[in-house]
Design a protein around this nucleic acid. Structure first.
Lengths: 187, 187
DNA sequence: CATATACTGTACATCGTGTCCAGTAATTCG
DNA sequence: CGAATTACTGGACACGATGTACAGTATATG
């Protein structure tokens, strides 16, 4: 049953409604409602199912590289897989449906923000990240531009975006005495 | 007629649909459709009408102060006026309706991004801002956290948010030889 | 006075949502 | 083996919102 949800999510089945989902899954309309409260819930579950492996960060030499890699991976997921369209749709649905909104925060945003916060804390320990920062704000600054471009499409989600975000934000994140780092970034 | 639209926008008339808008404006359903293609179009026009004065930046001593002030003003508008709820709704609508999306970019986002880019260019001229930055990316990093919090509400739009965004991002925006500035920010 | 323009109000077709219900198939349990 | 539970079917229906059509009314303009 979860297979169907995951399958549907990756088919980019947005805008089809419950009817479309039921038809695509080969089950009855009623059956869908038996297990999920809305089409958004089905697709969110499918999305989460298919993106389980994209939460944890891959090991990197430096904190900066780890963060850049993490953001790059996110850009690629939301741009090159149906996850992006799904996220756009779910975000739109979350405006009218608080339950979807909570689920998006808890099951999609929070785990990823948590991974970045862990990287930052580890970075502080290693002396690469400035202590005393508000990690929530740093997570916002790093992640938000990606979702911003995903939602409004005023600018494309390029391959370089993650690195560009780092270029602007890293000097404010890096430990101040790490002159080597910040100078290298600077130019 | 524009009065009605503006009035409605500031009543926080989201989710009422065309019927609700017509009723609130004291006109007939049909009349609304005569002038606007959708309820989103009405509310967007009303929103723009009532926020005309919030695009240009107020003069400030330094570029950093100007940017911080600009972001603070935006936070206050989207948090303390119906503009926030309206923007959330319009953003949601833009996912399904590309016309609304374009209008949002052209009439809401772009003017504000343009104002920030002008501040940045002026800052470069004054030697306060690092040359060679991608202004679009800087605008994303500065604005995106606000819209991100507006949309997902995973964290509140606090009074301090604008300053916190500046704390993280300014060191990467400031001219490198402006040691006074960047050191002051640092701690 | 005649005409164009704007507005009214109702009716109607359409679509997606969510619920209800009677009937069926398969599984589990006594 | 028979009975009860559980899951699924598919059709009907109520509801709300969208968008269009149309005949009629008010008002201003020439």
């Amino acid at each position: 049953m979860l297979d169907a949800a995951a399958e549907l999510a990756l088919e980019g089945a947005w805008g089809t409604g419950v009817d479309g989902i039921a038809a695509r899954a080969g089950v009855s309309r009623t059956t869908v409602y038996k297990w999920w409260p809305s089409s958004a819930a089905v697709l969110l579950e499918g999305l989460l199912e298919r993106t389980r492996g994209t939460i944890e960060s891959t090991p990197s030499a430096t904190t900066r590289e780890a963060l850049a890699g993490y953001l790059t991976a996110l850009v690629i997921v939301v741009r090159d897989s149906p996850a992006g369209a799904l996220l756009r749709g779910l975000t739109a649905a979350s405006v009218a449906d608080p339950v979807v909104g909570r689920a998006l925060i808890v099951d999609w945003l929070a785990p990823r923000r948590g991974a970045v916060v862990r990287l930052l804390i580890e970075g502080v320990r290693r002396g690469e990240v400035r202590p005393g920062l508000d990690y929530e704000v740093v997570a916002d600054v790093l992640f938000a531009p990606i979702y911003y471009r995903l939602m409004y499409e005023h600018q494309p989600l390029t391959d370089r975006l993650a690195e560009q975000i780092m270029t602007v934000s890293w000097p404010g994140i890096a430990a101040v005495d790490a002159t080597t780092e910040s100078t290298r970034i600077t130019k």
